[in-house]
Amino acid sequence: MARNVPDDGKPSRNERIDAAEASGETGGLIETSVTTEDSDEHSTPGRTIIESRGVDVFYDDVQALRGVDMEIPENRVTAMIGPSGCGKSTFLRTINRMNDLVDSARVEGELRFGGTNVYDEGVDPVALRRRIGMVFQSPNPFPKSIYDNAAYGLKVQDKTDDIDDRVERALRDAALWDEVQDRLDESGLELSGGQQQRLCIARAIAVDPDVLLMDEPASALDPVATSKVEDLIADLAEEYTVVIVTHNMQQAARISDKTAVFLTGGELVEFGDTNEIFENPEHDRVEDYITGKFG
């Protein structure tokens, strides 16, 4: 699939900023993400950072998402749940334009990040992905050393000053430092599955993105590793906006502030505070789903 990625020619730093500015108000956001401290000062927990308006996604003629409207709050955990094939992962990949990598995918509607429609002409998906990190379903560390895994994004994004400190901070924030500090030169593939996933989280947060997208990050892990990753997600929400796809409803209930329920057909059926969704869902279909009557 990645075979046919549209051309992401490497833009110079200036071009990237130009492209972002040309498309709207992201100029200010670019400055805020330089350091963690800065982004903390500027972020407003609870304010909408990602806004979806009537988003449709098609794979060739098959419609995977239908008119999704959603507001994702800053520095909160937003969970997306639903049965297999409901489009929750598709929506996640729509946010950072990972669907660009799929030739047959087509997106309609508006998806605003910090006020800018990320599908506007002139928006550089590379610049977008530098602000929106992603953690995938099964751990996918690079076949490189633990250090190089954590440092990869920093190198690609030219954030190489204090790189050792940044790597250490990322590994600490991912609750992995104590386990790997003596073996940073070993391959990331030597780690256990749970450690690999935390390494992937470290890799994503090392570059200090605004948003962290997580696509069923614990689904390939055992229960102990899962609970470690869940604890981590709760901590991460203090610094990052976390959007997590999960098929595990208990997990969504435990860790998220907001929950979106997608049901078959690519429809966002209900979106709201997690407590509301789980205790008092508006729709019968949602109630049936979360009480386990189907799905």
Binding site: D8, V126, R129, F136, N140, P143
Partner: peptide, 12 residues
């Protein structure tokens, strides 16, 4: 692995 790279803002 490619997705991981793109997800970190790497170019093609």
């Amino acid at each position: 692995l490619r997705e991981a790279g793109y997800g970190l803002g790497a170019t093609k």
